[in-house]
Simulated scan of single mutants.
Amino acid sequence: MNDPLILLAHGSRDPRWRAPFDALADSLSGRLETPLRLAYMELCDPSLESVVAELVTAGYRHADVLPLFFAAGRHLREDVPRQIEALHARHETLTIELLAPVGEHPAFIDALASIIEGRAEPSHAP
């Protein structure tokens, strides 16, 4: 049984904000063998707490949390580690590892730079 990967986004009260995250998770779920779950830090469901409870019920012993954040700000330095600590205290059978945010991955930086470069190119129209 592969360890699950939890994609963690911030969360928003605006349901339209969730659309790109839902689309990403749906796309990846069909392409990966690794069990994939999408969770939100706050403001919408599913919460990180509910996803972790689901994984524990399913018998998983380890899960990685991949933050869908550009950088490790206060939320990733303080709030999320506190959430994970509390979750581990509540679910001692599950080890939860917080990974570096996607924004720190070289491939993410390259993809973002490519998008920006494409927008910055001068128009070829006369």
Rank of each mutant, 00 (worst) to 15 (best):
M1H: 13
N2W: 12
N2Q: 14
L5K: 08
L7Y: 01
A9F: 04
A9D: 02
H10D: 00
H10R: 06
G11I: 00
S12D: 05
R16D: 15
R18Y: 10
A19Q: 15
A19K: 13
P20L: 01
F21H: 05
F21C: 03
D22E: 11
D22I: 14
A23H: 13
A25R: 04
A25M: 02
A25S: 01
D26Y: 09
S27P: 08
S27Y: 12
L28M: 07
L28W: 09
S29Y: 03
S29P: 03
S29T: 03
S29K: 11
G30M: 08
G30A: 12
G30D: 10
G30K: 11
R31G: 04
R31T: 06
L32D: 06
E33S: 15
E33A: 13
P35H: 03
P35A: 02
P35C: 04
P35V: 03
A39P: 00
Y40E: 00
M41Y: 12
E42Y: 06
E42D: 03
C44N: 10
P46R: 05
E49K: 14
S50F: 07
V51D: 02
V51A: 04
V52C: 00
A53H: 07
E54A: 05
E54R: 05
E54D: 11
L55H: 10
A58V: 10
A58L: 06
R61W: 06
A63D: 10
V65F: 15
L66Y: 03
P67A: 01
L68G: 01
L68Y: 00
A71T: 06
A71Y: 14
G73Y: 09
R74A: 10
R74F: 15
H75L: 05
L76P: 02
L76A: 05
R77H: 11
E78Y: 14
D79P: 03
V80Y: 15
V80C: 03
P81R: 10
R82V: 02
Q83R: 07
Q83M: 03
Q83F: 01
E85V: 06
E85Y: 08
A86G: 10
L87D: 07
H88T: 11
H88C: 13
R90F: 05
H91V: 04
H91C: 05
H91K: 01
E92G: 07
T93W: 05
T93R: 07
L94W: 13
T95Q: 14
T95C: 11
T95H: 15
E97V: 11
E97F: 00
L98P: 06
A100W: 09
A100V: 08
P101R: 07
P101S: 05
P101V: 05
V102I: 13
G103C: 12
G103S: 11
E104L: 03
P106L: 06
P106N: 00
A107M: 06
F108C: 02
A111V: 02
A111K: 08
L112T: 00
S114D: 11
S114I: 02
I115F: 15
I115L: 13
I115D: 14
I116L: 15
E117I: 12
E117C: 10
G118F: 06
G118S: 10
R119F: 12
P122N: 02
P122V: 11
S123L: 13
S123D: 09
S123Q: 01
H124M: 09
H124P: 03
A125R: 14
A125E: 12
